[in-house]
């Protein structure tokens, strides 16, 4: 199962955004996607849950299969049970007045029983340790809390795969750490996690696999320790994690060290 992508091409108008992408993601993987601005990361995420080609029109070709469902033949609503997508800006996702209503929205759309909805809302609030926010008004929350509410509202629907588009872009160190702790927890429980992220240090720490997207194609694909040591990275425009830069520097001076254990969780 997982995700299977074959010959995916997409363009909003003339300029191709995604070029001939082939990719497999297995169940239970923790995948990090990095890439410079404008490389097509967000567009790629939208292809995964069927928003492209159903809502956003453009030149789309190829096949994307999520948990055995081809996104061309299943609607976004049907795919939502298998794959959850959390967007970058929490302010443009939250629309309910209370946190509880916001989380219940997806569950109500699924047509669940009232008691089941209550149970799931409480469950997800507990899992993210934000039980105290349940009755709060959404516009009074901090950015970090809003981000967690967004995550909760998607997690409550219990999808097998979770895609996050720069979930920590508005968070400080503590907030980022918290988000990654939650993601790791979910990952341990068997969820597939795909994170689009600029903060490479965090991916190095948590991800099982790193994909580097450059001009619409995955140019590097492998273990964090391999990808982040690749000298191509800086040419593409991605920061090499500090540990590996020091390692490289020491190697040049004739000292052989392996920092991988130092940075991995």
């Amino acid at each position: 199962m997982g995700i299977k992508i074959r010959n995916l091409n997409f363009a909003y108008s003339e300029t191709p955004i995604l070029r001939n992408i082939n990719l497999d993601v297995n169940d239970g993987e923790f995948v990090g996607i990095v890439g410079p601005t404008g490389s097509g990361k967000t567009t790629f995420a939208l292809c995964l849950n069927g928003i492209i080609p159903h809502l956003i029109k453009g030149k789309f070709s190829g096949d994307v299969e999520v948990s055995g469902k081809n996104t061309k033949s299943f609607e976004v609503f049907d795919l939502a049970k298998s794959i959850g997508l959390i967007f970058q800006d929490p302010d443009s996702q939250i629309f309910s007045i209370t946190v509880e209503d916001e989380i219940a929205f997806g569950l109500e759309n699924m047509g669940l029983e009232k008691n089941e909805i209550k149970r799931r809302v409480d469950g997800v609030l507990n899992a993210l340790k934000i039980k105290d926010l349940k009755e709060k008004e959404t516009f009074a929350l901090s950015q970090g809390q809003k981000q967690k509410v967004c995550m909760a509202s998607v997690l409550a629907m219990d999808p097998e795969i979770l895609v996050l588009d720069e979930p920590t872009s508005q968070l400080d160190f503590r907030g980022t750490k918290e988000v990654y702790r939650i993601l790791k927890d979910m990952n341990k429980k068997g969820k597939t996690i795909i994170v689009i992220e600029h903060k490479v240090e965090w991916l190095l720490k948590y991800a099982d696999r790193i994909l580097v997207l450059d001009r619409g194609n995955f140019v590097l694909n492998g273990k964090p320790s391999e990808v982040f040591r690749n000298p191509k990275l800086e040419k593409i425009g991605i920061e090499i994690p500090k540990a590996f830069r020091i390692e490289k520097f020491l190697k040049k001076s004739g000292i052989k060290v392996d920092f991988e254990k130092l940075v991995r969780v």
């Binding site: 939208l46 809502l55 609503f77 759309n109 047509g111």
Partner: peptide, 17 residues
């Protein structure tokens, strides 16, 4: 963005609301 987010959470096909 809101439209996409709402769609992601299955708006439009509700059976029992």
């Amino acid at each position: 963005n809101l439209a996409m987010s709402v769609e992601t959470r299955g708006f439009g096909k509700a059976k029992t609301r």
